[in-house]
Design a protein around this nucleic acid. Structure first.
Lengths: 206, 206, 206, 206
DNA sequence: AATGAATGAGGGTTCATTCAT
DNA sequence: TATGAATGAACCCTCATTCAT
């Protein structure tokens, strides 16, 4: 649940030097994820975060330079998680269509488990447009790469490209919103299978 | 470009009684669309809106009860426009697949023409969650209805349902974001054709 | 109920020249008495007054220069009413003690009938300190005059003076507040008799 | 002069946790008493208070939730002071009439010393009607209690009751206004003696 | 490292008053 | 006279950030 710090230098974040410091940072990060996800960026005050984390207001600024900074850190963490999680899910797929199904399946469950992700990433469009665009462009770029590789192997139609990748990305995101975030009832693997079946036919080699 | 007032009762809006009033309201609405779309809800001050509209600060409150109110009005206006515009575009389609292509084609052009729409509607998730959900749920419900009617006519596979509708909605929205809002270069009708071709195969009757 | 205009020149008031104008002025004055009495000076907006009066906002300024002006006019009207009403009540008293009882009796009933008076006059302390002080000083001066005349006639103790007058004024005002304004239940004439009995003994000639 | 914090839970007040905090709160409270007393509630801005207190605007909200809150706190503090001050003054009286004289004497001096009290408590009628009524009702209830106890001891007439208590309360308040607040010249103890003499006769046992 | 008091720019909203019609 | 749209100064309050301890 807690966001693991990416190893890349994170500007605006002051790395803790002691164990106690690491625990505090972790508490703040976790609290921030919950609060920012629940209330949204503008409705969340630093005090909301520090109170939930059980630390004093000023302590926040021991680890972050600004409110934007935590937000940025969280978006990057989540973006990384989506990338890594999907990658893991794809690993033992039989073919590319099956891989996409597994990826969507994993993503839908992840979305339901981490509803905050949606709210946090969506807000990035206004709070931190850079990461927002980066997140979607790199996510879609990976889809595209997979499709083109598969096309080279003859698994999908030869003409797949950027447009298909964005279309698939949009499908996945909306299904995650509708069935993962907004609802608890549906069988997510079933949803993934239905969507994947349409995709399979849509992408089948001529 | 100017938002036509919907006929439905709009709470929080005080209908102007004179012609001068109607002109002023229109100016405020147009200015609000530009400012809210450009800067985002929280970065937009009432003064930004009134200055662009060329009226005094207080005049804003002659027509709206709060900043949330204009926002709400704009989302509803835009939501109606998307609905009506798509409906018009669908009208002279030969079959349902062609209809979906025309709808997407229209939507992509509309998105490029009204980049604000995206930013305004996306922000609604946090500013006015009610309309946000309503907009997407009703949009997708219309897609679903069209699909099911087409299935009854044998034009598309018999098992189409809610999941397909959300998938298509997400596809359209992301394509609009990527090629309509973020870019000026691509031929939008070409994009629509590519996506529609994948859809045609994905939805073809068995 | 409607405030009659005193004949003295009232600055800030524009005398109506037509009959229609007189009716409008009257409507505004009556509405102002109700609203200012109910909500208080600062909580009352000009629109509250004009809406209750059934006229347009701008019409208010046809008759008054400012919000303070209506307030001032009302305080003066009410102050005059208290003076004239008490004077009338005193007229057929047998002696001065009886006169004071009749005055208090009348005042208590007037207070119950016109609860606004209290709220309006009390607020004058902050809104229009001039009239506020004038009202109480002249009211008490009349009491004092009556007492001294009565002392000359041997009806009350010889040493009556300003202090006694203020004490009696305070007594009357508080009884009006407690039994006239705050409550509907008590028999006001009985209250006046009780207080007057204490006064009779307190003021009796040695 | 500084308002001591009552021990009762004070909603809307955030208790300071450090010494510095306690000093700041005290400064704000003192400044608020002066400003609210001088200018009145509506004419006093938060900046008036904080500037006089020598702190920044925002600091006000570290200790109070709103302008109404300080006002409320001040009225309660002052109300308590009047109660405690009068109680102390009464302590070594020989009989009840003498006690009332001492109480009035103390009150007149207190009023002259704290002219703000009048203006603050009077405004409560509109700003905070609850405490306003509470202040006067409990003050008068104490007078009544004293009178009835004295009647039981045969020190005053047997029929004393609520009406007499309100009458006395009104006398005291008006004398305080006229001689304590509005004027600096008169000998307050002399005033108290004159009023008390009238009272002594008015309340004497038959 | 941690605390919490202090800061003050900023922003939404109100409302008495003006004025063109 | 009457109307109601337009004006803009004023004000309360929020909250990210700083800083002394």
């Amino acid at each position: 649940m807690a966001a693991e710090r990416s190893t890349a230098a994170t500007p605006g974040l002051k790395e803790p030097r002691t164990d106690r410091g690491r625990r505090t940072l972790r508490a703040i990060l976790d609290a921030a994820a919950v609060e920012l996800g629940d209330r949204g960026f503008h409705e969340t005050g630093i005090t909301h975060i520090t109170q939930r984390a059980g630390v004093a207001l000023g302590t926040f600024y021991t680890y972050f330079d600004s409110k934007e900074d935590v937000f940025h850190a969280l978006v990057r963490d989540y973006s990384d998680k989506v990338r890594d999680g999907a990658r893991g899910a794809l690993a033992d797929a039989t073919d590319q269509i099956d891989a996409e199904r597994r990826g969507l399946d994993w993503f839908l469950h992840f979305a339901r488990e981490h509803r905050e992700i949606y709210r946090i990433i969506d807000q990035a469009e206004f709070v931190d447009p850079g990461v927002f665009r980066y997140h979607y462009e790199s996510t879609v770029a990976r889809i595209r790469q997979r499709l083109e590789n598969a096309a080279a192997r003859g698994e999908v139609r030869a003409d797949v490209g950027e447009v298909h990748a964005w279309a698939i990305g949009g499908m996945n995101v909306f299904l995650g919103l509708r069935y993962g975030v907004w609802s608890d009832e549906e069988d997510l693997s079933g949803i993934a299978r239905i969507a994947n079946d349409m995709l399979a036919k849509g992408l089948a080699p001529e």
